[in-house]
Amino acid sequence: MTQQSISSRKADFRVYLGSTLFFVYILFSTPIVGVLILAGFWLPFEVRYKIADIWINCLLYVLKLCCGLGYEVEGLENIPKQGAAIILSKHQSAWETIALRQIVAPQTAVLKKSLLQIPFGGWALATLKPIAIDRSNQKEALKMLLEQGIARLREGLFVLIFPEGTRVAPGATKKFNAGGAMLAHKSGFPVVPLAHNAGEFWPRNSFLKYPGVIKVKIGPLICTQDKSAKEINAEAEAWITQAMREISKEQLA
């Protein structure tokens, strides 16, 4: 069956109802989980991570229940079983900032420093070893990315980076920033490219979530030894671009 695109899809009562119920769940559950994580700040990182992990599991279940939105993953075998890696992912939606924590774990992510100021959710996130950068100071942001990124990788955490820097609408493209590739070049850790079409169902800056199945493709490891940051970035961007074309074709099949 051909999947309608967001541009031609009209929201019906079920979409509005499901999206509202999901929003209410987030509104009430986030402070509760945030307090639990903050209360356990003295506990090992693994315990705090597990609390967040349970919440995300519940969140994705409620998303499926209320909005009819699920996902399927291709290429899980490409995630290293031993050691960490840098995940360079397509960025279309808020969905991947949540769901990818379940698909690739344990992980931390590069994010805007201002997000840590959000009551409860942001405060709790601050205890989970994020790499929070100030985008207004690019030189300092890159320094923090490299220093903290290498430290997190050596701890065994996957580092999730959205090289486009911001959410990009389905069908649109944006030049990849070099920060993730530079981290790979400096650290020697491999890169895992990741593509998905979450923006087709959970559009950026949209309250509405549409039913369907988000397609996630995980590419083969990109070895970073003896490669420049430019070469690493180009290889990851080429794979993700091709994977996005394949996802689009599969949606139309």
Rank of each mutant, 00 (worst) to 15 (best):
Q3W: 04
Q4N: 08
S7Y: 10
R9F: 00
K10N: 06
K10H: 12
A11G: 13
D12P: 02
F13K: 12
R14W: 06
V15S: 04
S19E: 06
L21D: 01
F22R: 01
F22I: 01
F22H: 01
F23T: 07
Y25N: 14
S29M: 13
S29C: 08
I32H: 03
I32T: 07
V33Q: 00
V33T: 13
V35P: 00
V35H: 02
I37G: 08
I37S: 04
A39L: 15
W42E: 13
W42S: 12
L43F: 15
L43A: 15
P44Y: 15
R48Q: 06
D53A: 11
L59D: 10
Y61N: 11
V62R: 11
V62G: 01
C66Q: 07
L69K: 09
E72G: 02
V73P: 12
E74Q: 11
G83R: 04
A85D: 00
L88S: 03
K90Q: 10
K90W: 05
H91G: 09
Q92F: 05
S93C: 11
W95N: 04
W95V: 04
W95L: 02
E96A: 07
L100S: 02
L100W: 02
V104S: 08
Q107K: 13
Q107T: 09
T108V: 14
A109S: 14
A109E: 11
V110W: 02
S114H: 02
S114K: 09
L125Y: 01
L125M: 14
L128E: 08
K129G: 02
A132N: 04
N137W: 00
K139W: 01
K143D: 03
L146T: 03
Q148M: 13
Q148N: 13
G149K: 03
G149A: 10
I150P: 03
R152D: 00
L153Y: 07
R154Q: 15
G156R: 13
L157G: 03
L157W: 10
E164V: 10
R167G: 06
R167H: 12
G171P: 09
A172M: 11
A172W: 03
K174D: 12
N177C: 00
A178H: 03
G179C: 07
A184D: 04
H185W: 09
K186C: 02
S187D: 03
P193V: 05
A195R: 09
H196W: 08
N197V: 03
G199F: 10
E200S: 08
E200H: 08
E200R: 06
F201I: 02
F201S: 03
W202E: 02
W202Q: 05
N205R: 15
N205K: 15
S206N: 10
F207C: 05
L208T: 05
L208R: 14
P211G: 15
G212A: 11
G212V: 13
K215L: 04
V216P: 01
V216N: 08
K217D: 11
P220I: 12
P220V: 11
P220T: 12
L221D: 10
I222G: 13
I222F: 06
T224E: 10
S228G: 15
K230M: 05
I232A: 05
N233M: 14
N233D: 11
E235N: 00
E237S: 07
A238L: 05
Q242I: 05
Q242C: 07
Q242N: 01
E246V: 14
E246N: 13
S248Q: 12
S248E: 12
K249I: 05
E250T: 05
L252V: 09
A253M: 01
